[in-house]
Design a protein around this nucleic acid. Structure first.
Lengths: 158, 158
DNA sequence: TATTGTTATACTCTATAACTATA
DNA sequence: TATAGTTATAGAGTATAACAATA
């Protein structure tokens, strides 16, 4: 960008505070989220692990025996889009889908031994990824960020 | 979800703190960003205004005369994908693209009078949207969030 | 050589509608 | 009627490669 443009921007900062794109929380949320996701995808390129399948594996681990529809509700994913994601995880032998006794419509989802082992290592690497993403924050800022973010979207009155 | 699943999850919380999906900042960043974007798209459905074109209009307003490549660098968008976005904004008479004197490769981007007027109203409605998104936060939390988010991705050493 | 705007294209992600079988 | 899993499909959004004009 040219020097002229930078100067114009600097002048504008004092004149219209709260009017700039950079004053919008939503803008920063998107930039940081994309920054995080791209870093995630890059770090796990070897294993071809993507953020959403990782989330699904975490939830199956935390809620063994849950159904695909349960996962969809927890992650706000359409059932239709989950079909391929779960089929892929099944093909790779990370999860297994058992017929649920009692309700024949449902499948019960479980991690395989292989899936559990893989997930354990991936979780460690995800924590490393987060440490890198948040390396400029103090421990207090990190705690605060997690608390504030979850306060925004986790609530009863929605 | 069944009651059984909820109980299992509750037990696990104490056992493996820092191991749950909900302990990951990246997970919350994504959920909050999507929550924000969906709200934005819904609120501006009438005007068919989407987050990225809104960002582009803001930047052209803040940097009058900038080029498409400048916008791409500022928003981390590919030049190729900007072509359609800018063409649409031009068709709707929100922006105009003038041949830049001096460098014949570049176009200089400006808001039209109509675009500037529209943007002014949209900015007000975006602030209302943000106020609603962040309604559960204290003013201090809001300021903190903006500061922390921009600290994460805005830096020199990248 | 590098950059700008552009075209074409492929890939991922997401949303919707409809179907069946079960409840 | 409602729900679970599924199929097919359309639409965004994004990434890459190549090109002509210009620097």
């Amino acid at each position: 960008m040219s020097e002229k443009i930078k100067i114009v921007a600097a002048n504008d900062q004092g004149e219209r505070l709260g009017e700039r794109l950079e004053d919008l929380v939503g803008y920063h949320l998107r930039r940081v989220s994309l920054f995080d996701m791209n870093g995630f995808i890059e770090q796990f390129a070897d294993d071809n692990l993507r953020p959403v399948p990782f989330s699904i594996l975490c939830l199956i681990d935390e809620h063994p025996g849950c159904s695909a529809a349960d996962i969809g509700r927890m992650l706000n994913l359409q059932r239709a889009n989950l079909v391929h994601l779960l089929a892929d995880l099944d093909e790779d032998n990370f999860i297994e889908r058992r017929a649920e006794e009692g309700d024949k419509r449902k499948q019960s989802l479980f991690l395989t031994a292989h899936g559990a082992e893989k997930l354990s290592g991936w979780r460690r690497r995800v924590r490393e990824h987060e440490n890198h993403l948040l390396r400029r924050l103090t421990p207090a800022e990190r705690t605060n960020l997690l608390r504030i973010l979850s306060k925004i979207w986790t609530s009863e009155d929605r």
